[in-house]
Amino acid sequence: MPSWLRRGETLAVVMLSVVLVAALIGPLLSPYSSIIPSGAPHLPPLSAGHLFGTDELGLDIATRILEGTRTSLLTALVVTVIAAVAGMLIGTLAGFVGGVLDTVLMRVTDLFLALPATIVAMAVAAGLGTGLTSSMIAITVVWWPLYARLVRGEVRRTARALHVEAARMSGTRGTRLVLRHVLPSVLPTVAVTASLDIGGVIVTVAALSFVGLGAPAPAPELGLMASAGLQYVVNSWWIPVLPGLAVGLLSLLFNYAGDGLRAVLRGKGA
């Protein structure tokens, strides 16, 4: 890997840390509420008191992007963790026990894998109403199979490894064998995949709220801001473009940081 890329990843980690801190404490620092108008509508960026300008209602865009970022991060984190844990549970069970259970679980996994996130989100929204929780459930529902497949493959591979056979010969069986000798080798892969996935989940959350399946207005959600603002793109470009850029930047940062993590874990393994 060329050294400039390494620098890029380091930079990504540094920027990501800044973004994380900003997202955590930023809303506290901002003098404005993200849902109460704080200025005239359609103020362009760099207006006095409004770094990124205001939207059609006069809400401060910078404040909303900060809070939207926090929501995105939190959502993505929760979704990824739940999907990873659920996927690991099912993948491990399928990979380790094998046989009929494996076949059944993997068919079920395929079934979920084939579902498009948007359709599931619509179904969930129909049942629970639109909102952040609904889109989180929907994304988790379509996201865990990826981990189940990944983990199953890794578990099957690891289960055949010599050290697992040796441990089995030592009399270690069942759950204990999996927990002690199999899963730890799967964890780094899952961690790397998850860290790379966070970017994807952020984009998916934004995409769902872009098509109106996320939290209702005036919740500061990046996808919603971009979609609601799209009609003003010609006359007030900053209203949809800045939240859109924020989504892109966030997911790029997570990708680079995830790549960095992968490089670090690979380096350790070598």
Partner: peptide
């Protein structure tokens, strides 16, 4: 990386 990054870029470029 490529997949998600391009999704991200797509979002930007769509806008």
């Amino acid at each position: 990386l490529r997949k998600t990054a391009s999704a991200a870029l797509l979002t930007i470029s769509l806008t």
